[in-house]
């Protein structure tokens, strides 16, 4: 990888100042997406700003009717958090399915959603629960946050501080895991919170995570796997690569959505 300067701020304000002074800098969280890309020389930041010494960025707490997870909370800690498991086991299962144990020991929620890899798991949960992304500048609704492959609403100098997930009565994630990489070939997160029903899909779309409105409408009549019987989505706009065709990915969206609803209602 190309060399860079390395910074370890101890407050979010310091980190923001470093970002302002180094326009080509990147924030470093767990590093398990960024460092591999830098090794391949696909990214060449002038500076890395390591967020790991900033106090209070990795808290996990229930606040009213929301579970609030700090941006630097590691996947392994969220997956086994009693707070998350008690409120929404479906949410805890998402970081629990990322990569392998060592990756989960390092990877963070903030890093995952800021990167917005089209095959990452967390974007499905964030969009599928209608979470709010809280940065050092503002609050961003999940529906506005994800803007296509590796693209988010984050502006220059903006740092994710925490993510607030409204507690849904029913929520589940089902994933068709790529056996080698552990990424979602397709992953579907479903939730029901009062009349707000969401079906969010990762891995399948060529433009990143997306919602399936037709499935959501069908589930509004009755939140049951049966409501999605025989339903599918068109293959247009689906990813196609050596691992799966667009048609297969579209098919998996239907299968995994039914499984996720079945799991959420079990």
């Amino acid at each position: 990888m190309y060399d860079f300067t390395f910074h370890r701020p101890t407050t979010v304000r310091q980190a923001a100042g470093l970002l302002a002074r180094n326009p080509e800098a990147k924030l470093l969280a767990g590093g398990h997406s960024l460092l591999p890309v830098m090794k391949q020389r696909l990214a060449q930041p002038s500076a890395l700003i390591d967020l790991s010494l900033i106090d209070g960025l990795d808290t996990i707490e229930q606040k009213g009717r929301a579970v609030v997870i700090g941006a630097m909370a590691r996947h392994a800690d969220v997956a086994k958090s009693p707070v998350v498991i008690a409120a929404m086991p479906g949410l805890a299962s998402v970081p629990g399915s990322v990569g392998d144990p060592q990756v989960r020991n390092r990877g963070t929620i903030g890093g995952s959603i800021a990167n917005n890899d089209p095959n990452a798991d967390y974007p499905a949960a964030v969009l599928g629960l209608g979470a709010t992304i809280i940065t050092n500048k503002r609050r961003i609704a999940a529906d506005d946050f994800f803007q296509g492959m590796y693209t988010t609403a984050l502006e220059d100098g903006e740092i994710i501080v925490k993510v607030s997930f409204p507690v849904a009565k029913k929520a589940a994630y089902e994933k068709f895991k790529h056996p080698a990489s552990g990424f979602a070939l397709v992953g579907v997160f479903v939730s029901k919170r009062g009349s707000d029903i969401r079906v969010a899909v990762t891995g399948a779309g060529s433009n990143g995570v997306f919602r399936v409105k037709s499935f959501e409408e069908a589930l509004k009549k009755r939140f049951a796997a049966k409501s999605l019987e025989g339903m599918s989505i068109p293959a247009t706009g689906m990813n196609a690569d050596i691992h799966a065709s667009a048609e297969y990915r579209a098919h998996l969206v239907g299968v995994l959505a039914r499984r996720a609803v079945a799991k959420a209602t079990a």
């Binding site: 590093g31 398990h32 460092l35 591999p36 790991s52 144990p101 020991n105 390092r106």
Partner: peptide, 15 residues
Amino acid sequence: GIAAKSCTTLALQCE
């Protein structure tokens, strides 16, 4: 005390 892949960790992260 926690297992990690040292090929995906910078030495400076371990200061």
